[in-house]
Amino acid sequence: MTNKKGSDGRYRYRVCIGKDESGKPKYKSFYGTTAREARAAAEAYRAALGKGMDPAQAKATLATLYDNLIAAKKAKGIGQKSLDRYEDNKNHWGPLLEHPAADLRTADFQKVLNALADWHDGKPPLSHFTLSNLRSSAKAAYELAIPEIVQYNPIVKTTCPAGADPEPREPISEEQQRWIRETPHRAQRAAMLLLYSGLRRGEATALTWADVDLDAATITVNSGYNFHNQKTKKPKTAAGRRVVNIPRILVDYLKTQQDGCLYVLHTVKGRRMTEQAWKTLWSSYMADLNVKYGYNGAESKKRPGGLPMRIEPFTPHQLRHTFCTLMYFAGVDVLTARDQMGHKDISVTLGIYTSLDKKFKKKKINRLDSYLRKQTG
């Protein structure tokens, strides 16, 4: 390590970082307004080399860090949906992607997070959940790059803004639940299963009759289905592997549905449901429900130009959310509900229960008012 004061008044320290192809020493220079400042920068670099930093990757960009993370996640076999989410997170950082990752600081990331939490360039704010996911992905990208590319993680000191309120995931109404119970349709089996077990759509798609024990009134969830890769997959977390206790109404219904096929839910040819099969099935289901309950059966869904939707359609995921809501009304404790739903973090279940508490607290107080009036009347 050598030092020298240049003609511009700055001090320079040079560190030998190896030899070139001809065997001559290669040096890297560090500058400072004082000899101590230049030396400190040089020593920090030398210490980084000792910790495993690769000088050849010193200018690797934030985009490179994300690409490395996505490649690592893909090697672990995570689903395409999750990989796409990492790609979306990457793109949210905009201009920062082209900057050397080692040069970016906490303030750079905080500025972007704050901008995304508010209206920006005509775009609505992101939710706190999305912002938190974005921050977590960047943190993981930096963690993977230590110590070869970067020496510290600037994301750790950032704060996730509140962002926009998340869109509510409303459960379906009691009337819509009655539609499911009372309307025969090829999709009724899927709707009954999701409504009264809380399974995710991928879990329901992977379900076989061997996983269903009608005597014990349980469903064992061992796997899910990746619609993009068209392959079964293990649950992402230990919480996903679970035994779901199902109510008698679903037990009695499923006893009438055993048809000799391997899969509980399947196409008309007995094959596993695909993404397109789900879309076709559900579209037909909503159209039939619309005819029966929106038009009292007086119209045909094949009417020229289509039949306008008079009912409120619902999605398969709403049925899962409704199952959690039913447990809340039945007085099922939040720990049991978490296990039934397969939530990794109890805060997810608590969030649903808390939201329902707020929504129905007024009704509960009104019941108290009615009771007190009877007592004092």
Score class of each variant (00 low, 15 high):
residue 145 A to P: 01
residue 351 G to A: 13
residue 70 I to S: 04
residue 37 E to C: 06
residue 123 K to R: 15
residue 49 L to F: 11
residue 341 M to Y: 15
residue 27 Y to A: 01
residue 162 A to Y: 11
residue 50 G to Q: 08
residue 297 G to N: 13
residue 273 M to F: 06
residue 187 A to F: 08
residue 356 L to A: 09
residue 2 T to P: 06
residue 37 E to I: 12
residue 18 G to Y: 10
residue 361 K to C: 10
residue 111 K to F: 02
residue 345 D to K: 00
residue 257 Q to E: 15
residue 82 S to D: 06
residue 25 P to V: 12
residue 149 I to Q: 01
residue 304 P to R: 07
residue 1 M to Q: 03
residue 231 K to N: 01
residue 217 A to V: 05
residue 126 L to Y: 03
residue 20 D to L: 06
residue 182 E to A: 14
residue 323 F to T: 02
residue 235 P to Y: 14
residue 42 A to Q: 02
residue 349 T to M: 08
residue 31 Y to K: 06
residue 292 K to Q: 08
residue 115 A to D: 07
residue 345 D to G: 04
residue 24 K to N: 13
residue 230 Q to K: 14
residue 19 K to V: 15
residue 367 R to A: 15
residue 226 N to H: 03
residue 308 P to V: 09
residue 169 R to N: 11
residue 321 H to N: 13
residue 376 T to R: 10
residue 344 K to W: 08
residue 351 G to C: 04
residue 304 P to N: 05
residue 2 T to I: 10
residue 311 I to P: 05
residue 288 D to M: 10
residue 295 Y to L: 03
residue 298 A to W: 13
residue 110 Q to L: 10
residue 171 P to T: 09
residue 72 A to K: 13
residue 351 G to I: 11
residue 172 I to W: 05
residue 309 M to T: 15
residue 109 F to Y: 09
residue 143 E to D: 13
residue 301 K to M: 09
